[in-house]
Design a protein around this nucleic acid. Structure first.
Length: 113
DNA sequence: CCATTGACGCAGG
DNA sequence: ACCTGCGCCAATG
């Protein structure tokens, strides 16, 4: 049996983040079984094929801040997508207590391949 | 092969 | 709230 490639495992977690909720890079890594590898998540997202259509905009820094520089095109796109889903952004950040995704074990167990 | 670079996170000060 | 340092490590030059 072969181990699922790291990027694919990260992509699966990101794909599971529900609309209207957000998750930190570090949480995505943890849930993918790669604790301490937050930076790998950013790499995986850059490398993700567009066809996969991942909700990358739902991934933020641990403190709720948008990872991209304020005013950058990427940040504006991300903010727009989040607002479309009802996520409130103030001062370039999101209130993680309100919008943070907290999956149950059941959620994780029933992830599609 | 060595150095630098990040869509990061956390502990300190 | 802001800054600094360190751990992390695949990718890039």
């Amino acid at each position: 049996m072969q181990e699922e490639p790291k990027y694919a495992r990260l992509w699966r977690i990101v794909a599971a983040i529900p609309s209207g909720r957000v998750a930190a890079y570090g949480l995505v890594a943890d849930l993918a079984g790669l604790p301490g590898r937050a930076r790998l998540v950013s790499r995986a997202l850059r490398a993700a094929p567009a066809e996969r259509d991942l909700p990358w905009h739902r991934v933020l820094r641990a403190d709720g801040r948008i990872a991209f520089a304020p005013g950058s095109q990427a940040a504006r796109t991300q903010i727009m997508s989040l607002r479309d889903e009802g996520v409130v952004i103030k001062g370039h950040r999101v209130d993680m207590r309100r919008f943070g995704w907290r999956p149950t074990l059941g959620d994780l167990m029933s992830l599609p391949y």
